[in-house]
Design a protein around this nucleic acid. Structure first.
Lengths: 233, 233
DNA sequence: TACAAGTATTCTTATATAAGTTTCAACGAG
DNA sequence: CTCGTTGAAACTTATATAAGAATACTTGTA
């Protein structure tokens, strides 16, 4: 019933990462220091750090130390952009067009996003791969959580890297719902593909370190040459 | 350089599950017994059991014991059948038609499947949900690994449950490649849907406890009312 | 039914050794 | 003297053992 100590350590470390005590990429105190600091034994601190590593919140390297995960364009893309070539290779899409607007949140957005925001930023991007239009992504985030976002345009390829660097908001997990559909007229024109092309539609909610739902994203993918890759364990 | 002890314990337990020493659903010896048996300390055995639990190979319950995972139609479906309703509820499809044939393996199948089989069983099933055709699945398995499979028809809804119960073959992981497509004439007729309906196509390879690729599966899903659910961590 | 005893696991602490990484001073070759 | 190598020291995490306390579950008994 009561929370195990290692769980408490786990939470405390997450708190400290979230409040900037341990900034992105920073080295954490070693196991003994952390243990002494929180009044537990080294083994208990170790167990907490291990599960933080399992969740990809920190990285540990023998002989070096424990570091807060640093989102790079590479690992962010690898983790959250699931399109692969037919042979399984990673795809690096090139940004194409980008628009950012601020608008009122829809009822669904207000209900889902963190702190029931009244206003959101909507970031729409078309990306291409090897010259062909590849996907259209529309990302919706609470405006209060990302002040000054519009002034940062044009945004980098990897949104989540920017979220971490500029806002200390570390994206940890996401849920996606996929379905097959046909490109309608508007969509086709926007992306530069033929109307009626089969497309993979994804609707994602994204959560950060503090389990806050910080993004809703809709993606339209052209999967003529590519596939969406899923692992099940 | 040398294999850690806990890793050895991990392997030994997997071996014993695979060779039937610990059959599906069976209780393993407790941590102290297992440790004594393999000549390690209880903490080391514990570490191995924990990682087996992380991989969903065993289930542990404080006060009860450690048990070999038992695939039930429920958990198998939950884990490997990813279609959900728009509100996120689990879907239980009803089997519709089923055909099993034995045939020569294609070059791709021979290259991918365990032990480069010359012959395979091909299980084709159409399933429906709430009266509507939902999906067509074509599962290909090496015939040598599943002797007498054809005599078992009609197969149950959950193939992997039967693999475990009848052949002690425990499915642990799978990789899937998804893309959007249009139902062609043959496909449409077979499933009872309109030609040109957008469908989600999945190509899966499935691995068992011993990391053997024991199945290749192609699925065609009608995602008009349903979505394919993916979690990213 | 309620309670107590027994069993099994988890949680926590403690200690020791192994093994990677970095730093830096000492040393030798040129 | 300068440069590069060597090696020790100090740091880190990783592995392993041992042992006691707390918690969860089962079962026997009143």
């Amino acid at each position: 019933m009561t929370e195990p100590l290692y769980r408490m350590v786990y939470r405390k470390v997450i708190e400290r990462i979230a409040d900037g005590t341990y900034p992105p990429g920073a080295m954490l105190p070693n196991e003994f220091e952390l243990a002494a600091d929180l009044g537990v034994s080294q083994g208990t601190a170790r167990k907490a750090l291990s599960s933080l590593e399992d969740r990809a919140i920190v990285q540990r390297r023998q002989g070096k130390g424990t570091f807060v995960i640093l989102r790079t364009p590479e690992n962010s893309l690898f983790h959250f952009f699931r399109l692969r070539t037919k042979t399984g290779e990673q795809v690096t899409p090139e940004p194409h067009t980008e628009t950012i607007t601020k608008r009122k949140a829809t009822a669904a957005e207000r209900a889902t996003l963190f702190e029931n925001p009244s206003h959101v930023f909507e970031i729409t991007r078309v990306r291409s791969f090897e010259g062909k239009p590849l996907c259209m992504e529309q990302s919706v985030v609470p405006s209060e959580l990302f002040p000054g976002l519009m002034e940062r345009a044009p945004l980098k390829n990897a949104l989540y890297v920017m979220f971490q660097q500029a806002y200390s908001c570390i994206i940890i997990s996401a849920e996606e719902h996929l379905h097959a559909s046909l490109a309608d007229g508007e969509m086709a024109e926007f992306m530069g593909i033929a109307e009626g092309t089969p497309v993979l539609v994804s609707e994602r909610v994204t959560r950060d370190l503090l389990e806050r739902t910080v993004e809703m994203r809709k993606g339209i993918f052209v999967t003529e040459d590519l596939t969406y890759f899923v692992e099940m364990n």
